[in-house]
């Protein structure tokens, strides 16, 4: 076969050969050691903190020792109280996230593709997007009551904008030559949209989703500070009022862990949905 010679062409992604000498940095940041390496600096910080409290250098009313916090975490887990708060916060976030993201993706794609729609709606988006979502929480509560719905709605609004803006930008950044190729090979109308526009926009959509997960965390905590009697935000707020600082830290810790899990989970999902995306491989870098 004449084309056989191409098989030896090195692909652009050839992995480093086994046994090739690697630098210390490469060995610590890639491969099996990387997980233990990454945990090094947070662990050191905790140790310094613990020692600082033990030595009386830090005020334990404001900075309870990590060991105290972990005991509190155990207690809150044991009584089921923490799980209760967690579930309610997560379900508010999930509902708001879905309610905001799905219309955001659709409208963003449409606004990216149809110039007229974009010209019509872009000024409205540009004018309302910068308003901090928390600023309109009282208004949302006025309209939707102080129950669950208002918290879901405020998260949905936050997610909606971010996903809309990144999907729209994604469509506008499609390489025009891809559209030309698709047209030349017979893609028209709906098929152009589903088979070409949507897949080329997926990486941008995922970026929007990642941003909006972060914003959901911020918004849910803030909303639960002022207008809830359950949830992680509520736990932090009530612990401040009752001066049970270690519970406050438990709440903050949980939020941090959620942030990591969301980013990681979405990255995994992205790789599964877009095994072809080079951009997505460097998602976290």
């Amino acid at each position: 076969m004449k084309g056989e010679q191409v098989f030896s062409e090195p692909g652009p992604k050839t992995p480093a050969l086994k046994g090739e000498p690697r630098s210390l940095a490469a060995r610590l940041t890639e491969g099996p050691l990387s997980a233990s390496f990454q945990i090094l600096s947070p662990l050191a910080a905790l140790l310094v903190w613990e020692a600082g409290v033990a030595a009386g250098l830090m005020d334990r009313r404001f900075f309870p020792a990590p060991s105290t916090i972990f005991v509190a975490l155990g207690q809150l887990l044991g009584t089921g109280e923490l799980l209760d708060h967690l579930i309610i916060s997560l379900s508010r976030m999930a509902a708001g996230f879905l309610l905001g993201s799905i219309p955001g993706i659709l409208l963003g794609l449409l606004m990216g593709w149809f110039r007229l729609l974009r010209a019509l709606l872009d000024p409205l988006v540009a004018a309302t997007f910068p308003v901090p979502k928390i600023a309109i929480l009282p208004l949302v509560m006025l309209i939707f009551g102080i129950g669950e719905l208002s918290k879901v709605v405020i998260i949905a609004i936050g997610c909606f904008y971010l996903v809309l803006i990144s999907s729209m930008a994604g469509v506008r950044n499609i390489d025009p030559v891809l559209i030309e190729a698709a047209r030349n090979f017979g893609a028209r109308g709906r098929r152009m949209f589903w088979k070409v526009v949507l897949p080329s926009t997926l990486p941008a959509i995922f970026t929007g989703l990642r941003l909006s997960l972060g914003v959901s965390l911020i918004v849910i905590v803030a909303a639960e500070f002022v207008a809830a009697n359950r949830g992680i935000g509520y736990l932090i707020w009530i612990s401040w009022q009752t001066l049970t600082t270690e519970h406050m830290y438990v709440g903050i810790l949980v939020i941090g862990i959620l942030g990591i899990l969301f980013t990681y989970g979405l990255e995994r999902l992205g790789k599964a949905v877009m095994p072809w995306s080079v951009d997505f491989r460097t998602f976290r870098e």
């Binding site: 030309e180 897949p199 080329s200 072809w276 080079v278």
Partner: peptide
């Protein structure tokens, strides 16, 4: 049917 200088393959 066109062949493009930029290849214009669909990455996905």
């Amino acid at each position: 049917a066109m062949v493009f200088q930029e290849y214009a393959l669909f990455p996905w």
